[in-house]
Every structure is written in structure tokens, then in C-alpha cells.
């Protein structure tokens, strides 16, 4: 079945968010209704705030829809190139080892354009946290296949669904990073329901605590809704995430205290 990519989202891509964190300057943003990225960001900011690290945090942001959220984040930020946040974060952390250093990247940014950056940063055991907002598409460019798009997932350039024999296989980046020697903490959360949001916030807290204890590289992947890029009605986003992405990019903690979970 072909998907219709010609129609705009149900509502205009503009909405006043009904959420706020103490580290948010405003709730007004231009991301789509039903987008998971503002929800993930709030979980991240709440974690920074709850750990009392707001005056010690530096974020390095990649390029994707979430980039538009930087104007409302009340933390010191550096805007990096598409894919390049881990190296920028590395340089910053080496010069300011007492700060909480995190990146904010999308799946296109981290797993496509900048894959070697995150792998090397993890393997070097850089004492920082990379954060992946994984929606399985290039949201910003309009819903194209990324390296994390799951088999069968329909995107603008895998119209009949991702076919392994033609498009190749998805990269399960969290699982890959967990196996590297330099990583202390790896978890994959999801923001498709309230319990998932609460768990994701806890993962952020554990990753940041691990960093502040100097345990090396930590990684939090968050599955986020992108109804616009998935071409599904807004209210079907959470269910689609759970069924389509969630069944392949399985949520949970993958590595804790430098040990693989379940190993």
C-alpha cells in the first residue's frame, strides 16, 4: 500500500505546550501537535533540575526538529553541526570536567550523519551523556528513512516499507553502544505513555548520576512520536510508536554500572 505524503498534518504545526519545566523559558514552540520531542526534553530538564545540576550543565545540540526547542531551554548550550555534537561535547567536557555535559540529537543526526562520532566518544569512555531522540525518521526534512527505521516501516523514501534486501537493516544503536568498553550506563526509554515518560526521566537521572560519579560514557535513547513524519493521525502516534518502533528498539536499561543488563 502506498502512503499519501501530499497532505499536511491534521492541525497547523503550531501549538502552545501544556507542559513546563523550571528550566524552560516558555512553553510556546513550533513543533507539531503529538510530537514526542518536547515531552522527552521536559523529562531531561526535570532530571537536570531534580539533581540540582542546573548551574553546572552544558548541552550540545544537533540538527533536527528538536533544534527549534533550544530557544526555550534555560541551560548553557552550544549548537553543533548535524551529526557532530559528540565531538563538540568531548572538547567542552575535557576543558570543563566538573560540568554535566549532554548532547541532544536525533536518529538521523546521530545514527546516520554522525555515527562514528558517537561510537568513538563512547569507546573513548568520554565522561558525558549522549541523548538520542529516536523517531525512526528524518522528521525535519519531512519523514525520510533513517538508519533506525524498522523493517516494514513506511517513510517518504521507503514507500512500500523498509525492505532489508533493498534498504538494509536498522541499527540498534543503544545495543551497539552498550557492548563497548567505554560505556557505564545505557538505557532506552519511550514517551508514548505516562509510565514511559516517568521511566525515561529516571533513566536521565541515572545517566547523569553516572556521569557525575565519573563512570564514563552514558547514553539515553528515547523513542519519540513523529505523527507527521510517520503520516499517521496525531492520536495514533503513541500506539504506532509502541507497536512499530517499540517492538524492535526494545525499551529498558541495557547497561548499568558498566555491566550489561541480563548478561
Amino acid at each position: 500500500m502506498k502512503i499519501d505524503t501530499s497532505s499536511p498534518p491534521e492541525r497547523a504545526a503550531r501549538k502552545t505546550g501544556d507542559f513546563a519545566s523550571a528550566l524552560q523559558l516558555t512553553t510556546d514552540h513550533d513543533l507539531c501537535p503529538g510530537c514526542g520531542e518536547p515531552v522527552a526534553l521536559r523529562a531531561l530538564l526535570d532530571a537536570v533540575e531534580s539533581l540540582g545540576l542546573a548551574q553546572r550543565a552544558i548541552g550540545v545540540v544537533g540538527i533536527g526538529c528538536y533544534t527549534a526547542l533550544t530557544s526555550l531551554i534555560d541551560l548553557d548550550l552550544v549548537q553543533a553541526l548535524h551529526g557532530r555534537a559528540p565531538s563538540v561535547a568531548t572538547g567542552a567536557k575535557r576543558m570543563r570536567p566538573d560540568t554535566l555535559l549532554f548532547t541532544l540529537q536525533g536518529d538521523g543526526d546521530m545514527v546516520n550523519e554522525g555515527l562514528q562520532e558517537v561510537i568513538h566518544t563512547a569507546a573513548r569512555g568520554e565522561n558525558l551523556t549522549c541523548v538520542l531522540l529516536n523517531n525512526g525518521v528524518f522528521g525535519e526534512t519531512g519523514g525520510h528513512m533513517t538508519a533506525t527505521t524498522v523493517l516494514g516501516q513506511r517513510t517518504k523514501n521507503s514507500l512500500e516499507g523498509r525492505d532489508a534486501s533493498y534498504h538494509g537493516h536498522p541499527i540498534l544503536i543503544g545495543d551497539l553502544l552498550a557492548r563497548l568498553g567505554g560505556t557505564g550506563y545505557v538505557a532506552r526509554g519511550s514517551v508514548h505513555d505516562a509510565a514511559g515518560v516517568a521511566r525515561t526521566r529516571r533513566y536521565f537521572e541515572r545517566a547523569f548520576e553516572s556521569q557525575m560519579r565519573g563512570e564514563g560514557f552514558s547514553f539515553v535513547e528515547v523513542l519519540t512520536m513523529c505523527p507527521t513524519g510517520w503520516f499517521v493521525p496525531t492520536r495514533e502516534g503513541p500506539g504506532y510508536l509502541d507497536e512499530v518502533l517499540g517492538s524492535v528498539h526494545v525499551t529498558g536499561e541495557l547497561k548499568v554500572d558498566g555491566r550489561l543488563v541480563g548478561a
Binding site: 542546573a54 548551574q55 533550544t70 530557544s71 534555560d74 541551560l75 548553557d76 552550544v78 570543563r96
Partner: peptide, 20 residues
């Protein structure tokens, strides 16, 4: 340096002139 987090005056070093 991270020090301005939560102050309403935090920085964003970016190449397109984005303001907080």
C-alpha cells in the same frame, strides 16, 4: 560554563543568531 542555567540568561552559542 554552565553557570547561567535557570537564570533566564543562559547562553546558546550558535551560528544563525538564535536567541533564547
Amino acid at each position: 560554563d554552565g553557570s547561567l542555567g535557570g537564570s533566564g540568561r543562559s547562553r546558546n552559542l550558535n551560528p544563525i543568531g538564535m536567541q533564547k
